[in-house]
Design a protein around this nucleic acid. Sequence first.
DNA 1: AGGAAGATCTACT
DNA 2: GTAGATCTTCCTA
Length: 192
Amino acid sequence: MEIIGKKFYQRFPDKVARDLLGKLLVRKLDKNLLVGKIVETEAYFDRHDPASRAAVSEKWHKKMLRDVGKTFIYMVHNNWLLNIIAHKKQDAGAVLIRAVEPLKGTELMKKFRNADKLEFLTNGPGKLTQAFKIDKTFDNIPVYVEKSPLIIARTKEEENFEIIEAFRIGVKKDLSEPMRFYISGNKFVSKK
DNA sequence: AGGAAGATCTACT
DNA sequence: GTAGATCTTCCTA
């Protein structure tokens, strides 16, 4: 397991969203490790993207302008959603982590989620933050720094998979291009 | 004060 | 598979 450097996030959000598939989301919790493989993401852009927080208000726009590789967390319908800031230069942008495949620490995840079935533990943006015990206090932490409580890493051997493109879920006004990406055939994807 | 929001759960047809 | 209720935060009037 090798932590991913900051530069990785200094690209267009859709690029980063694609490349985050198959990577590991690692949550350090006391002596325990919670690990999940990222299987579904969505890209959000600057103010021209009507579904982006950046388009809502200047306050949100500012948050999305911050340094790449940091978390960006907000609540929707009583769910905390986990994003990673990703953009080029002065643009605002972020990648929403929509689903992961539970790999390690699944017993704790079941406890936090109050659910038993593996496939319902982390197959949605609000579900995975519950399973990983992520909330507002995890806002603005760098996922490229070894000592952070939440990091993103790559596996030793790159596996092969097909990436499916689709339109984003739940957004009222979407862009003309599909900005949701997921691993083909993976059963932990929130919605086929 | 009111309503919308990048969702989830439940209870049904 | 899908409709409806429901959790909180923040924006707009």
